[in-house]
């Protein structure tokens, strides 16, 4: 297990008296794409929040490349970048400033940041064209590009992506997925939450199915389809 990039053991996340995730363990290997699936309310987002320490976990041990993760700034420093649900770009700041802040945690040198920023503009030329516009004025797809770009500014080893395709046109999603696969090809690991199950199954190496705050299936996408784990998790989750 020491080869794991991210290892999560016994994670529980609660919001006040309500527990969202109970005793979950999962891992992401170096260079892997792992999908976290499950119906709404299964606790997927809570897992990501617990992993970065955004919501301090009620229990559990999170290690990134062997080091403990306990708060978001530490997570970023250890090479975890988080593309949050709903994108959460800073609407009143320009595209450039959004990216600049993305790199705050890792580098003080403006020249270094500019190099990285140019790489991101290369990856998403649309962002380059709109670099001095306010992020709040971008379209949904452009904002998602910006959110990914902002996360990439820290040159992470692991990218957490929450609901990549939420509210986006299918063509835009295709482009984004293409970029993510390229990043993965360059060695970056991905842990992603995605509502379009088959899209996620198409690119993932491994899959975790969550239901009611617990892992109900772990395995390859093929197994997930064959054993009917997907249908089962979603049906259980809706209480039908």
């Amino acid at each position: 297990m020491n080869g794991d990039l991210l290892s999560v053991r016994g994670l529980s996340v609660s919001y006040g008296p309500v527990s969202a995730v109970r005793n979950i363990s999962l891992r992401v290997g170096d260079g892997e794409i792992v999908a976290l699936l499950g119906p709404n309310g299964a606790g997927k987002t809570s897992v990501l929040r617990g992993v970065t320490g955004l919501v301090p976990p009620a229990a559990g041990r999170i290690r990134m490349a062997g080091h403990r993760v306990d708060r978001p700034s530490r997570a970023v420093a250890l090479g975890i970048a988080h593309v949050p649900e709903g994108r959460r770009v800073f609407p009143g700041l320009s595209v450039r400033d959004n990216l600049l802040l993305g790199g705050w945690a890792v580098s003080g040198h403006r020249s270094q940041l500019r190099v990285r920023q140019d790489q991101i503009f290369e990856m998403f030329p649309r962002l380059g064209e709109r670099q001095s516009q306010l992020a709040g004025q971008l379209s949904g797809g452009e904002q998602q590009m910006l959110a990914i770009g902002r996360a990439l500014m820290t040159e992470p080893r692991l990218l957490l992506i929450d609901e990549l395709s939420l509210g986006l046109a299918p063509m835009v999603v295709d482009t984004l997925i293409e970029r993510l696969v390229e990043l993965n090809g360059a060695g970056m690991s991905l842990l992603l939450i995605e509502q379009f199950v088959h899209r996620a199954l198409g690119i993932a190496d491994r899959v975790y199915m969550l239901s009611k705050g617990r892992v109900v299936f772990e395995g390859t996408p093929d197994d997930a389809t064959k054993t009917g784990a997907v249908e089962e998790a979603y049906l259980l989750g809706t209480g039908a």
């Binding site: 970065t52 978001p72 800073f90 609407p91 009143g92 700041l93 802040l101 705050w104």
Partner: peptide, 10 residues
């Protein structure tokens, strides 16, 4: 604008 996102970014 968004303290939560600011924490996420580190």
């Amino acid at each position: 604008e968004d303290p939560g996102a600011a924490r996420i970014v580190g």
